[in-house]
Design a protein around this nucleic acid. Structure first.
Lengths: 100, 100
DNA sequence: ACTATAGGCAAGTGTTCACTTGCATATCAA
DNA sequence: TTGATATGCAAGTGAACACTTGCCTATAGT
């Protein structure tokens, strides 16, 4: 679960895709491809982007809805909310002896 | 910068090491090895752990101090604090026309 | 000096990963 | 139906990655 999430975030192109979906949610595959090429100069194939989106979807960061021949991709930031909690807000250690 | 950080977090063993350093900061390499073996059943070599610690240090998540033949590893959670901000608190889009 | 402990360096191996290439499917417009 | 658009599937390739193995250095205790 957490593994899929961190692995999804490990790739720079995927993080850029999240940036673009943050800027405008509900984009199609071609729209994302165009933005990666235009705004970020990424010479990347359509299939590569499609595979990245599949990884993001498996991590729960992207949700999709089909309409006719279009498939829209929506961002879901919920999985991101607490991923650093285990280190930033560590659980209190069990006291060795009962405190007063 | 962010790339090193996310790549460091992408490995499950490294995240477990962060957990152990959260539980007790300032551990030596051997101490971490013992904990990974005991508490997590990870049959992993000392060199592998050492390499993981190097990755974590390159990401700024672990800092080290040398004392005699011991090298202590301290956790630094600062790099973790704002890594999800770009998606959770996106910058406000520039308005197309000036609002009143 | 000898030995044990704690750690470091570097080459080799097998797997995972990002990406491409080629072909196939599905929807829509003429 | 024909053609263009939007996407999907699967095999192959090269690089990055996690891990091991073997040897080396340095500190500390006896």
């Amino acid at each position: 679960m957490a593994d899929d999430l961190f692995k999804a975030l490990a790739d720079g192109t995927r993080r850029t895709i999240l940036d673009e979906l943050t800027d405008k949610s509900g984009q199609t595959l071609f729209e994302i491809c165009a933005r990666l090429s235009m705004k970020h100069g990424l010479g990347i194939s359509r299939q590569a982007v499609s595979q990245h989106l599949a990884v993001l979807e498996a991590a729960g960061l992207v949700e999709t809805r089909r309409e006719g021949r279009y498939k829209f991709h929506d961002l879901n930031v919920t999985p991101l909310r607490h991923i650093t909690e285990r280190w930033l807000d560590p659980p209190a250690p069990a006291p060795e002896k009962e405190p007063s």
